[in-house]
Amino acid sequence: MAERVDSGTRPTAEGEAAPRLRPLPARGRVLAVLAVLTGGLLALHRQVPNSAGHLGSLLEAFLPWLGVVVVLLLVAALVRRSATALLALLLPVSVWTYLFGGLLGPGAEAGTRDLVVVQHNVSDENADPAGTARTLAGAGPDLIALEELVPAALPVYEKTLAPDFPYHEVRGTVGLWSKHPLSGTRLVDIRPDGIEEGWSRGLRTVAHTPHGDVAAYAAHLPSVRIRTSGLASALRDESAGLLGRALAAEKTGKVVLMGDLNGTVEDRGLSPLTSRLNVAERGFAFSFPASFPVARIDQVMAGSATVVDIRTLPSTGSDHLPVAARISLD
């Protein structure tokens, strides 16, 4: 009599039935997809549209933090022992390294034609302007740019900084202190349409350094807000465009821009500036908020010069951290 074999089984050597083998599901497919998407956002962030809620600028404001997503995906891939996910992670790792890896490297050695500058939004609610001034002077800069200067605190900054920085200029709520003589100071009008007449947040002067004249700009662009509708940055973007036009008209060969620009250098809203000036080659220097810095919105940029590195200074009475940058004038 013929032996009956049940569906879904096969006889073993001993004649016993065994379950039919089925292919195991591939491990880490979801992780691999997430890795590719993360790599795509890093590589193609400029393609994310700004038409709705300035989503592109919002992504670019926190772009380096996608590296944390990559690390979390890597840990998950190792836990699942997924070769597929690990292979896919090569994309975001490579792109992040290309975009930001250089910022992690050591800075170049100090040169004989270096200029050290400090940038700080001192806050109009700063309860210790004298201590703030001493912290900034302690970094040994040639130039100090300050924003949110209020009339009550201005004399304190002037008195505290005067011994080391005998030259200074103030326009509105921004000021610049220098070890070297200044000339040709003027207001830079970066006031967006609809802002009241007394709004003054930009100045330009020429610092006569031992290494030649440098056009020094100090600026404070309008604030941005993160809302449910996205990033509200229209006023900031308009002000950046006005500042960019002023820089385009600058006749002095070397230029340094210091300011609270309320945007990261990856943010396309600052492209009128970053398209004309060099940004820091080393250092993340996240400066805001001071309690838990997640982005550098206090910037130092240079034209016909190199921003070698940038770093944060100790916290002051402000909600921003100061940043110090070394600029090579070679």
Rank of each mutant, 00 (worst) to 15 (best):
residue 205 T to P: 04
residue 215 A to V: 14
residue 201 R to Q: 14
residue 206 V to W: 09
residue 231 L to D: 04
residue 184 G to Q: 07
residue 200 S to P: 04
residue 183 S to P: 00
residue 208 H to P: 00
residue 181 P to A: 09
residue 189 D to M: 02
residue 193 D to G: 13
residue 226 I to N: 02
residue 226 I to P: 01
residue 213 D to Y: 00
residue 164 D to Y: 08
residue 190 I to T: 03
residue 230 G to R: 02
residue 186 R to L: 15
residue 168 H to E: 09
residue 203 L to I: 11
residue 215 A to C: 14
residue 207 A to N: 04
residue 172 G to W: 02
residue 197 E to C: 07
residue 217 Y to S: 11
residue 163 P to D: 08
residue 197 E to F: 12
residue 221 L to R: 01
residue 220 H to D: 11
residue 219 A to G: 03
residue 199 W to I: 01
residue 225 R to D: 05
residue 174 V to T: 05
residue 224 V to Q: 06
residue 169 E to M: 08
residue 173 T to L: 14
residue 180 H to L: 00
residue 199 W to C: 02
residue 226 I to T: 08
residue 182 L to M: 10
residue 212 G to P: 04
residue 212 G to S: 06
residue 219 A to D: 01
residue 168 H to V: 10
residue 226 I to C: 01
residue 163 P to S: 03
residue 169 E to P: 04
residue 177 W to Y: 13
residue 224 V to R: 06
residue 215 A to I: 12
residue 220 H to M: 10
residue 199 W to H: 07
residue 187 L to F: 14
residue 174 V to S: 02
residue 202 G to R: 02
residue 168 H to S: 13
residue 184 G to I: 09
residue 219 A to S: 03
residue 183 S to M: 09
residue 176 L to E: 01
residue 180 H to A: 05
residue 221 L to V: 01
residue 200 S to T: 14
residue 195 I to H: 12
residue 225 R to V: 11
residue 175 G to S: 12
residue 207 A to C: 06
residue 222 P to V: 05
residue 193 D to N: 12
residue 187 L to Y: 13
residue 206 V to S: 10
residue 229 S to E: 14
residue 204 R to C: 13
residue 185 T to M: 11
residue 195 I to K: 12
residue 182 L to K: 14
residue 179 K to I: 06
residue 168 H to L: 10
residue 177 W to H: 07
residue 179 K to S: 11
residue 182 L to D: 00
residue 220 H to L: 10
